[in-house]
Amino acid sequence: HNLTITQGKLFFHYNPKLCLSEIHKMEEVSGTKGRQERNDIALKTNGDQASCENELLKFSYIRTSFDKILLRWEPYWPPDFRDLLGFMLFYKEAPYQNVTEFDGQDACGSNSWTVVDIDPPLRSNDPKSQNHPGWLMRGLKPWTQYAIFVKTLVTFSDERRTYGAKSDIIYVQTDATNPSVPLDPISVSNSSSQIILKWKPPSDPNGNITHYLVFWERQAEDSELFELDYCLKGLKLPSRTWSPPFESEDSQKHNQSEYEDSAGECCSCPKTDSQILKELEESSFRKTFEDYLHNVVFVPRKTSSGTGAEDPRPSRKRRSLGDVGNVTVAVPTVAAFPNTSSTSVPTSPEEHRPFEKVVNKESLVISGLRHFTGYRIELQACNQDTPEERCSVAAYVSARTMPEAKADDIVGPVTHEIFENNVVHLMWQEPKEPNGLIVLYEVSYRRYGDEELHLCVSRKHFALERGCRLRGLSPGNYSVRIRATSLAGNGSWTEPTYFYVTDYLDVPSNIA
Rank of each mutant, 00 (worst) to 15 (best):
K317G: 09
E417P: 04
T485V: 04
D506W: 09
E356H: 12
W216S: 05
H294A: 04
E290L: 05
D503H: 04
R481P: 01
L505R: 06
T340N: 11
G207C: 01
P238V: 05
K236A: 09
E404W: 12
N422P: 02
P205F: 14
G476D: 01
L505C: 11
G368P: 08
R471D: 07
K236N: 11
T241E: 05
H416T: 08
G207I: 01
R319P: 11
V414P: 08
S284F: 05
F226E: 07
T241G: 14
T303L: 05
S251T: 11
T386I: 12
K236V: 02
E279V: 04
S284W: 13
G489Y: 12
T307G: 05
V424I: 02
L228F: 08
R471A: 12
D408W: 01
P475E: 06
T303H: 04
E388D: 05
C231P: 06
S239V: 14
N477E: 09
G489C: 08
H416L: 09
Y500P: 05
G436F: 11
F298G: 03
V393H: 13
G374A: 03
E495F: 14
T303A: 06
L470N: 03
I276D: 02
V324M: 12
K302Q: 11
N435T: 00
S268D: 07
A335W: 06
V358K: 15
T347L: 14
L505M: 03
T347P: 08
N295A: 03
K236E: 04
N339Q: 14
R301W: 03
S315C: 09
L487M: 05
S203C: 12
F462L: 06
T343M: 10
P312A: 15
Y375D: 01
R286W: 02
V397M: 15
V365Q: 12
D222R: 14
T347R: 00
D385M: 09
R218Y: 12
A399M: 07
I209A: 11
P300T: 07
K460V: 12
N421M: 11
S274C: 15
I438M: 06
N421Y: 11
I482E: 01
S363R: 08
V411R: 13
S367K: 09
R466H: 11
H454N: 02
S262D: 14
V414C: 04
E430V: 09
S251P: 09
R240F: 14
V443Q: 00
A394E: 15
G491H: 05
N208Y: 09
D229F: 04
G449I: 11
S492A: 09
D311P: 13
Q384A: 08
R286D: 00
G491A: 12
V214F: 01
D506E: 04
P434I: 07
V501W: 02
S363V: 11
T347F: 07
V443N: 00
P314K: 12
E258W: 04
E221P: 13
P332Y: 06
E260M: 12
P244N: 13
R240M: 14
S486R: 02
E389V: 11
N421L: 12
S509H: 14
Q252C: 14
H454V: 07
C267L: 03
Y292F: 11
R316F: 15
S283R: 15
K357F: 14
L369R: 02
R301F: 03
V457R: 06
V345W: 09
S509M: 09
T497H: 06
T272V: 05
F337K: 08
N206H: 06
S486W: 00
E247P: 12
E417Q: 10
G476K: 02
R316A: 10
F226S: 10
P387F: 12
D506Y: 09
L277P: 01
L464V: 07
I366Y: 04
M402K: 14
E282I: 06
D503N: 07
G489T: 12
L228I: 12
S223K: 14
G472I: 11
E433K: 03
E465Q: 14
L321W: 09
S257T: 08
W242M: 02
F419V: 07
R301L: 03
S315G: 14
V501T: 05
V327N: 10
V501R: 02
R240N: 15
E290I: 05
P332R: 14
Y292L: 03
Y448P: 12
R313S: 08
F372N: 03
E442A: 11
Y375L: 15
A463H: 09
V423L: 03
K361G: 05
R313N: 09
E282S: 04
L237N: 07
T272M: 10
V345Q: 11
V424Q: 02
L440G: 02
N435L: 00
G374M: 10
E417M: 05
W216A: 10
N477Y: 15
W216N: 13
A488Y: 15
P238T: 05
P205H: 06
E452R: 06
A395F: 03
D385V: 06
E433C: 14
D222N: 14
K357M: 15
P332L: 10
N383L: 05
I438P: 02
T485I: 15
S305W: 09
L225N: 04
A336G: 07
T340L: 10
V324T: 05
Y441N: 03
S398P: 08
S479W: 13
Y396A: 07
H371L: 14
L237M: 08
G308T: 12
A220E: 12
V393E: 10
L437V: 09
D273P: 15
N490T: 14
E265H: 08
P403M: 04
T343V: 12
R318V: 14
V299R: 14
S458P: 11
